[in-house]
Structure formats: structure tokens, C-alpha cells
Simulated scan of single mutants.
Amino acid sequence: MTIAMDKITLHKGDLPDGLDLGPTVAIDCETMGLNPHRDRLCLVQLSSGDGTAHLVQIAKGQTDAPNLCRMVNDAAVLKLFHYGRFDIAAMYHTFGALAQPVWCSKIASRLIRTYTDRHGLKALLHELLQEDISKMQQTSDWGAAELTPAQQQYAASDVFYLHRLKEVMDGLLAREDRTEIAQACFDFLPTRAKLDLIGYPETDIFAHS
């Protein structure tokens, strides 16, 4: 499904003053690569679940976005992610804003969809919501001064469906009696992101050896 451009708003540097995205906000990030110490944050996309998406383009060297950070830090706002571990680390490294409380569809998927090893967002949306999204722009240049309509549509699709996905996956977690353990994982996720940033991306600190 292609998201109409009139459903997408692009902002430079920060969310506008006074924008209220409600108590539950879907968030995703685009970066220049997968190493937050090397690869800068380029875009933060958000949706309140109302069928619109807000994209915040982050400039090279930018270290603050007051309105965005206020929302990220707000304990009254639940932040929805897909693979939040990376996005939380990227925003914390760039702005010093640690997202919490959080919910993550990849963690939920690994807890309930043990019949498959396909836990990407595209697979989840196809199976659980019968929505098909394109991943063609995933590896495009997110540091470009001007983002193409295709890039904007791709970025929006990463947050557009997360509210609906959460509703379905929360039901599956409850069905499989894994709601409590999922919540414990979500609560730990910001700490897991901080461990990544200080040099423990692969080390299991709980291991005996």
C-alpha cells in the first residue's frame, strides 16, 4: 500500500510547537548506517495512529530537538517501535533523550511467533494485518538534503500501522500467557540500548562464562 503524500508532513529539525500526538506514539528512525557511533541520525518518523505521519529531518551535527525530546522523555506517552533497541539507542546517542515507556513489535513477535524466523515489520504486517509495504527505500541515502516522495512514503509506512499491530499482538501475547514477560522485556529495552552504546552489543552480561 502506498501512503498518500497528503497524509505525511515533513518537518525540519523538530516537531512544531503545540503538536500533541496523544498518549501513544509510534516512532521509527532512519540513519546513515547501523553503527550509532559512526552513522548519524537523519530522520525520526512518528504517528499518533490517526492515519497521518510526521517526519522530522535531523541535520548533520544537530544535537537537540526540544519538542521531539520532550515527547520522547514524557513518561505519560507510550512509545511504539519495531526493533526499538536500535531506535532508542540512536535517539539517546544523538539527543540524550531516553525513550520510555516503550513497546516493541519485534520483541512481541519473537515471544509469540515462535513458528517462524521472520520477524521483520514487512512480514508482521503481511501476516497479521494483511498490509503490504515496500522496503525498496530502506538502504537509500537518508542524509540527502531533500527526501524523495518514495523515501517519505517508506518512512511513514514504518510507523503508520504500529498502533493496529500492537492491538493484534497484545491479544496474541495474552492468548499465549506472555503479557507479563513481554512487559518486563519492554521495560528493560532502554537499558539494553544503553548497553549497546557503551560497548556490549553482543555480550550476554547474564552468561555464566
Rank of each mutant, 00 (worst) to 15 (best):
T2L: 14
T2E: 15
M5L: 14
D6T: 07
D14G: 05
D14E: 02
L15Q: 02
D17S: 12
D20S: 05
D20T: 02
D28L: 00
T31K: 03
L34M: 00
P36H: 06
R38M: 13
D39M: 11
L41H: 01
C42P: 10
L43P: 11
S48T: 10
D50N: 10
G51E: 12
G51R: 02
T52Y: 10
A53I: 06
L55M: 03
V56W: 04
I58G: 10
D64R: 15
D64G: 15
L68Y: 04
C69N: 04
R70I: 07
V72Q: 08
D74H: 03
K79W: 01
F86I: 10
G96D: 07
L98D: 07
L98P: 00
Q100R: 15
S105A: 11
I107Q: 01
I107G: 02
S109P: 12
R110W: 05
L111E: 04
T116M: 14
H119P: 13
L124R: 05
L124S: 04
E127Q: 14
L129V: 08
Q130P: 05
D132C: 11
D132S: 15
D132A: 13
K135M: 09
T139G: 12
G143Y: 02
Q152D: 02
Q153V: 05
F160K: 12
Y161I: 00
L162F: 00
L162W: 03
L162A: 09
V168L: 08
M169I: 11
Q183F: 14
A184P: 08
T191L: 15
T191Y: 14
L195F: 09
D196A: 08
I198S: 11
G199D: 03
Y200H: 07
Y200W: 12
T203I: 14
T203K: 09
D204Y: 08
D204E: 09
